[in-house]
């Protein structure tokens, strides 16, 4: 899998320009008025938190470890499905 890099899609000069825009957005800032801080923050936190559709991973009945999975497999005569990864797939950091 490859990340959504734009580097391979556009000339380098455009990449530099786009990066500069993104950078300047992070640097330049018009302070949010005091009265707007709470609703502004709440709106973003609500919008950006994981949606149920982004946690469908939780709909799978995962065994807690390989040995438990093997015991269940033997008693139920089902095969074991193992996914191994670096990082933590349960929090999307992998």
């Amino acid at each position: 899998m490859k990340p959504m890099h734009i580097l391979s899609l556009v000339p380098l000069c455009l990449v530099i320009a786009a990066s500069s825009v993104a950078f300047s957005h992070a640097v330049e800032r018009t302070p949010i008025p005091d009265a707007q801080v709470v609703p502004w923050t709440e709106k973003r936190v609500t919008e950006w938190e994981p949606k149920a559709s982004e946690r469908r991973f939780d709909e799978i009945g995962w065994a807690k470890d390989i040995r438990t999975a093997r015991q269940l497999a033997q008693s139920s005569q089902r095969p074991v499905f193992i996914f191994t990864m670096d990082g933590r797939i349960n929090i999307g950091r992998c």
Partner: peptide, 25 residues
């Protein structure tokens, strides 16, 4: 994988109905 195949109904249903799924960190 979390928001890819493991979020697809077909995969979720197969794993739940026919397998004993486990993930390893």
């Amino acid at each position: 994988m979390r928001t890819g195949p493991f979020s697809q109904t077909e995969v979720i249903n197969r794993l739940n109905a026919y397998f004993v799924p486990v993930y390893v960190v």
